[in-house]
């Protein structure tokens, strides 16, 4: 297969960026998109040019590091995939593929396609945990948890913190990310104790980091590689309202 890649290049946070065109010839359909970028980078290095900077790590869709907008969509058009799970067989032979970083004011560009997602850390630090110290836990079987609650907690906790929801949202809202953590913990008896304080603190942190608000477009849900449901945003809004008036 042959492809034309248009890749975002930007020296640093303050420089102006541009697209660079790279040609890829005789590409195996079994190659992943990031493996193709690796290969193109090898060629650039040997030519004495700077390779394209892009973040990646586990290459199996779980660490949440890779964060590319592929052909206009965060993580590309394959529903439920991270960037690293895209394989060339998913593209058309001869296709032009544009590659750029997730874009959001809260995610400044560091270099080329690498972004700074520290804002998401601050949202978790505001309250995305259960306040229990090592040594203070009762036996794990003490409190039975209804399977529906436990399953919902798991589904919400599957978020990998990649930030695709923010990149997909026209408002750059982080409400899918934030509501997933709130729903995860509030679904379990262990997390209910601090639920009110948590939702207030995390929503506040989210606002302070410069993320926008939800206007029910649900592009976040469509872009999410882990099928995190926008239903959690409604749950978070309800919890926030309850916590604010009680």
């Amino acid at each position: 297969m042959n492809f034309t890649l248009k890749v975002w290049r930007q020296k640093d946070a303050t420089s102006k960026g541009h697209f660079q065109t790279l040609e890829a010839k005789d590409v195996s359909p079994d190659l992943s998109l990031l493996e193709l970028l690796d290969e193109l980078n090898e060629e650039l290095v040997l030519k004495g040019e700077e390779p394209v900077a892009f973040d990646n790590d586990c290459r199996e869709g779980i660490c949440g590091t890779c964060a590319l907008v592929v052909n206009g969509q965060p993580h590309g058009r394959d529903y439920g995939s991270t960037t690293c799970q895209l394989h060339m067989r998913m593209f058309k032979d001869g296709e032009t593929i544009t590659i750029e970083p997730f874009r959001s004011a809260a995610f400044p560009i560091i270099k080329d396609c690498v972004i700074d997602r520290t804002a998401l850390e601050h949202v978790i630090q505001a309250g995305g945990y259960v306040s229990v110290n090592a040594g203070a836990a009762p036996d794990a079987a003490t409190i039975p948890v209804p399977k529906e609650d436990s399953d919902r907690a798991f589904a919400a906790a599957a978020c990998i913190g990649c930030g695709a929801c923010v990149a997909a949202c026209p408002n750059a809202s982080a409400m899918l990310f934030t509501s997933a953590k709130i729903t995860h913990l509030a679904s379990l008896p262990q997390g209910k104790v601090e639920a009110k304080r948590r939702v207030r603190a995390m929503v506040k942190a989210m606002d302070e980091e410069g993320f926008g608000n939800c206007t029910n477009i649900r592009a976040c849900e469509a872009a999410c590689p882990k099928h995190i449901s926008a239903e959690y945003i409604a749950r978070m809004n309800r919890a926030f309202l309850c916590a604010s008036v009680s």
Binding site: Y129, V132, G135, A137, A141, K147, S150, Q190
Partner: peptide
């Protein structure tokens, strides 16, 4: 055993059966 206790207390959503047990 203490690890499982702590993780459950932290809200780690381990798989459970229909009786709500781990």
């Amino acid at each position: 055993n203490a690890i499982i206790d702590l993780c459950v207390a932290q809200g780690v959503p381990f798989g459970r059966d229909y009786g709500g047990q781990l």
